[in-house]
Every structure is written in C-alpha cells, then in structure tokens.
Design a protein around this nucleic acid. Structure first.
Lengths: 210, 210, 210, 210
DNA sequence: TATGAATGAGGCTTCATTCAT
DNA sequence: AATGAATGAAGCCTCATTCAT
C-alpha cells in the first residue's frame, strides 16, 4: 500500500477531526451563531485550514447532516435485516429504538438538520452534496417503508402506500424531537423525550393496526 | 370620536403593513437571510421606519409568531366551546381541522416559528414579548389538553396526563408540517400535507382510544 | 404696542422654553448622546418645532453657551463697576465669587462649553452665532483684564500683560471646574469644588502679588 | 528567541500603527466625528482589521489615553526620584517641565482625555481598561502629592492635604492646556501655551510658599 | 499542507432633519 | 405655527473567505 493511500487516509482523518469540532460548535450555537473561527479553535486548527477540507461553511454543516443520515440508514438497514422474524409490535418497537439511537448519536445535529433542511435554502451547497443529501433522505424513507411493507401488504397495518406511512413515521419522529426541544423554552423540563417518543410510537403502533 | 382614535388606528394599520411585508420576506428567506432593508423595500418604506414600530429585527419576527399563536388559541377556544356535544372521533377531527386552519392561516410563519422557537435563542427579545410568547404557547397546550380531558377522565382515551397527550398532538402536528415542508427539497411534491395530517390524526385517533 | 411686538415676544418665550429643556438634556447626556427627540420631549414639543427656532442641533447647543457667556459678562461687569473701592485681595475675592456664581448658574453647560468649544469644531454653526460666541469670549477676557488692570499698572500685581493674566484666571477657573468634574470618575467625591476653587484662587491671589 | 517572539513583536507593531493613525484622526476630528473607517484609511488597513486589535472604538480611543497617562507617570516618577536634592522652587519647576513634556508628547490626546474622562461616560469600555485608566489617574495624583509632600510637611508650602495640592496642580495644568486650546477658536493664536504654563506655575509656586 | 492576519462586503441600527397635514 | 411620521445617510461592527508566507 502506497504513499498515496496513506495521504488519503490522513486527509480523511483530518476531515473527521474538523467535523467533530464543527458538530460540537454547531450544536452549541446553531448554524448562524457558530463562526468558522469557533470551529477552527475547537478543532485546534486555523480558519484557513477548514477551507482545505470543506468548500465553505454550509458545506461543512451539511456534511454533518450527511453523517447523521448515513448512520440512520445503517441502523434502518439493520432493523430491516433482522426484520423477518418479528411480529408487528416488535417491528414498530425496533423502528422506534433505531430512531431513538439516531437521536442519541447526535441529538443537536439531528435537530439542526430538521430545522435547516427545510427552511433557509442554502445557495452555496455544491450539487454533489445536495444530491447526496437528497439520495440519503429518500433512502431513509424507502427503508422505513420496506420495514413496514409486509404488514401493510398483509392487511395488518392500515391500508396506505408504504411511503406515506414512512412519511408519518418520520414526521412523528421529528415532531416529537423538535417539540421536546422547544419545550425547554417553555417549561424547563427536558429529558422526558424518550417517554414522549415511546408514547407517540405506542399510539402509532396501536393506530396503524386494523 | 376623534383624532386620537384615528391616529391609533392609522398606526396599527402601518404596523400591519410592515408585518405583512415582513411575513413575505421572512417566508421567502428565513429569519437570517432576510434583511431589514428587504423588508423595508417590500413594505415600500425606509429602513428607519421599521424601527418606529418594532424595536429590532427579532422583535419584528416574533411579533409575527405571536400573531399565529393568537390565532391558534382563538381556534382552539372555539373547538373547546363547541366541544360538549361531540363524540371522541369528532373531537379529534375538529382538533385536526383547527390545526390545519392555523397552518393555512400562515404556513411559513408557523414553520419559522417551529424552527426558531426551539433553536437559536434570541437575546434581543424584550421580556414582555418573550413572556407573551411563552404564555401563549402554554395556553395552547392547556387548551388542547382541555379539549381531550373529558375522554381521558372517562377512560375512553388511553390513560395519560392530559398535558402529555397535548404534547403528542402538538408534536405530531409540528412534525407533519415540518416534514412536509422539508420534503419539497427532496421530492418537489407539496400540498399533500393535508392528507398526511389526516392520516396522522387518523392514526392518532385510533391509537388513543382504548 | 402692536400685534407684531406680541408675536415677537411670544416667539422669544418659546425659544426660552426650548433652551431650558435643551439645557437639562444636554447636561444629563452631553452633546452627542442627547437627541433632538429627547429635547423635544423634555420641552413637550415635537421635534419639528425645534427647527422653527433653531437652525440645527449645534446651533441650539451653542445658543446655550451664549447664554452662559452673557451671564458671565454681566457678573464681571458688575464686579468691575464695584471695583474702584476694593483692595487687591477683595478684587480677587470678588472675581472668584463671580466666577463661582457663573458656575452655579449652569454648571453642566459651562462644562460642556469648555469641552466643546475647544475640540470638535462644529461645521453647522452659522457665522452669526459663531461671531457672537467669539465676541462674548473676548469680552469676558477683556473684563477680567480690566478688573485686574489697575493693580498691574500700579505694580501691585506681577508685571504681565493684563490679557495674559486674564488668561490665567480663566485657565485656572476652567481647570478647576473640569478637574473637579472628572474626579467623580476617580473618587466618587464631588461637591468640594468650591473649596478647590477657593484654594486655587488663594494661591492665585498670593502668587500674583509682588 | 524565535518565531513566537517575533509574532508578538509584529502584533505589537501593528497595534502601534493603528494607534498612531487613530491618534491623528481623533486629534483632527475628536472622538465622535472620527469614524472607524477614517482611522482604517489613515492606517492603510481595512476596518475589520482594527477590530483584531481593539474591541471597539471606545477601547481604541482610551488605549490612547492610557498611553498618555503611562508616559505621565513615568515622567512624574522620574521627577520624584531626582527630588531629594531640589529646593522648593526647583521642585515646582521640574514638575512644570514634566507636565509640559507630557503635553508635548501627545497634545491632542491629552486634551481629548481631559474632555472625555469627565463627560459622556462610555459604556463600551471593558472593565479592565476602565480600571487601568482609574488606577493610572490615581497614581498620577499620588505622585504629584509625593513630590510636594516634604515641603508641605516642613511648612514651606501652605498647609494643605497633599492630595488637595496635587488636585490644584492638576487643575491648573489641565485648565491652562484646555484654555489655550480653546482660544485658537477665538484668536487663532496658539503656541504660547508654554509661556502661559510657566506663568501659571510661577504664580502657583509663589502662592504655595508661606 | 497549514497558517492566521487581513479583508471588505454587508447587516443592523440611530437620529438629525424634512415636509405634508 | 405646530406636528410627528417618515426619511435615508452614515456609523459600528461581524465574519466568511482569501492569500502570502
């Protein structure tokens, strides 16, 4: 294995180092209030260096989203492959657990992703990254749909296009997360997200069964 | 009577004019990318004038949120007052309709509100406005809880603290909205939010009944 | 006496009203941090009205200086006319008292005047007002010089051009006032300006005598 | 040694470059009418760069004051250390010379300092800088007091608390400077400040001796 | 490759002044 | 004469990005 390979690996390592730092800073301050200098400091690098690895701030930010989505899809694939032997209740439970794990993997990034993927379109995103994001999002939906597909086809779940059902899963998931997040402003009580998510999915589970 | 009354009305009209313009600009660009100059231009006013009616940009933005929340609470109160004669299915349906109307009243602001109420705490908000926002948010929750309370107490809905149930309603509602919004990025298909909301609430309705 | 006369008098009264308000606001905030709206509010008038009586903010400010200088000259003339019968000690004492009275007449304006007459040349001052200021300042000096002139000529005071001596009087006076003022920043103790002024003039009195 | 040392020195040099430019611009226009852009242009830098070295405009301005005060204290300490062998006349003369040197070191800043230390309290000053200013001012007073202390104790100077006497010295000094400065507006004659200062201190010297 | 000082466009906000009523 | 809403120029400051070393 050559020197080129090593260089490439070294480069990837540095990229990761930056992303770890960026994640912390974005989580703490949000996309807008986090500055490139903040991130550079956190990564113990200089601002200029960040631009050797990421075209611009938006691209750095969405590379993080990408990572979350990648992790999400890995977890969903895992659910899908263990899927065959599970009964409907168990499927919904394992789906819920997977989603909750993703949340725990990187809660703030997930929230930021929800916030920003929708509004404030970002002009500076390179088409490549944009496509990656889109593809991964689509894939998540398809995976959720696949997980639930058998039951739908067999009439155990309510009759609905699988993708539509996957939408609902995703909507409930993101809704719970964002709502819990926003309540800190209102009540100061946090940390019962897990319970809310459980209740939501219990309702979801009961609701979709005929 | 008189000149004072007219002045007051005139002033309120101007405030509205600014809010209408601000809504358009914020909807199109989001809080951060919308500039005060954008809004001034949209309102056919000069930048300085905006500050005669709103202390700063954040305050202008959240005055819009306030309006949505006020409308929401009016709608929820209406549901509550017509509540007594409805059966559980009808209650959930009227709740869903109310929420959907709120969405239609001002979709982008609602979305922005969801985004920003949670993240990026804003320092420049006057305590008064902050309190108003908090109060109205709390009130919404209490109203939803009140709507569902009877059924919970009578064991028709699953046993759960009413506020917790209201949380779920709200989470599903915001989740569906944000999710639908974000899918435009992915699929380009919009406008089937209403269907998704219906499905979500159908699931919700089925799920919460014992 | 005609209607024109009355109008003129009325106009002068309004001018005074504005100046009184301006004095208060400038005293509290200084030239820069005082806004025309502040002054208008204090005068219970609208901003626009101020401009009917004063060409601009600078002109309003320096009209106040003018008033202080006018009062100063009146006091100095009074000293001069009572002068003949006094011995040197008494002359210096009456001079000191006159200056202290001027300080008490309008302390903050005097301070502001000292501050601003020197630095920050003001472009917007009309030549007329500028000339008035210059004339009155010169006159003050001449009056002080006149008060001390006899003693100088008679060799009782140190040999010095009367105007030069008047300069020193004025310098010590303004120095004491400004210095006392600035010490509030340092020590928090105020109000012993009178003592300092007395000591300074005691030194002055002793020093100028041969 | 080394690269770090050089960097530090380079940074200090740039700071000085900015301060030199700022001094010129502030001298020409005063604190308020000088803009950060003016200063940047004078320093042949971009506006943003100024903020790498000074937190804000006020802080830049008062860093200049600081420098004057530091120089003042160095000069006063020097007088004090050479003090022992001098007779009262010589002490007052060396004090006067020291003060005059300070004036010559940076006349306009000194004037600005006198103006602004008193009026228009500045909110944006960092507590650190504020404390430095206060400390240095106090120290100046103590040094002047120390210079004159022996004579006062020995009854050669009039009986007075040393700090009070130092106040007078300072008041006369600043008074002469400001007054001379302001006269340029009136007479156009400048540059005989040195004479006035000498006369003032001659009077002062004569006055304080019993 | 890494640096980090420098840039400068652009945002928010203030406020002296104007002018239609 | 008086109003006061509206103006818009101008100031301060931030920060993503660049580039010489």
């Amino acid at each position: 294995m050559g020197i080129l390979e090593r260089k490439k690996r070294e480069k990837e390592r540095r990229r990761q180092q930056i992303m770890v730092a960026a994640k912390r800073v974005f989580s703490a301050k949000g996309l807008n209030r986090a500055t490139m200098e903040d991130i550079a400091k956190e990564a113990e690098l200089s601002p200029g260096t960040l631009y050797l690895y990421f075209k611009n701030k938006d691209e750095l930010f969405f590379s993080l989203s990408l990572r979350v989505l990648q992790y999400l899809n890995i977890r969903l694939e895992h659910v899908l492959s263990n899927d065959k032997t599970l009964n409907p209740e168990q499927k919904i439970e394992s789906l819920r657990n997977a989603l909750y794990d993703v949340y725990e993997f990187d809660p703030m990034m997930l929230i930021n992703m929800f916030h920003l993927q929708s509004s404030e379109t970002l002009r500076n995103l390179s088409p490549t990254l944009m496509d990656d994001l889109t593809d991964l999002s689509r894939q998540s939906l398809r995976l959720i749909a696949a997980i639930l597909e058998d039951e739908i086809r067999n009439g155990i779940f309510i009759d609905m296009h699988p993708i539509a059902l996957a939408d609902i899963v995703w909507a409930i998931f993101s809704g719970v997360i964002l709502w819990e997040e926003s309540k800190t402003m209102i009540d100061g009580h946090k940390d019962y997200l897990k319970q809310t998510l459980e209740i939501a999915f219990e309702i979801f589970g009961r609701g979709i069964k005929t």
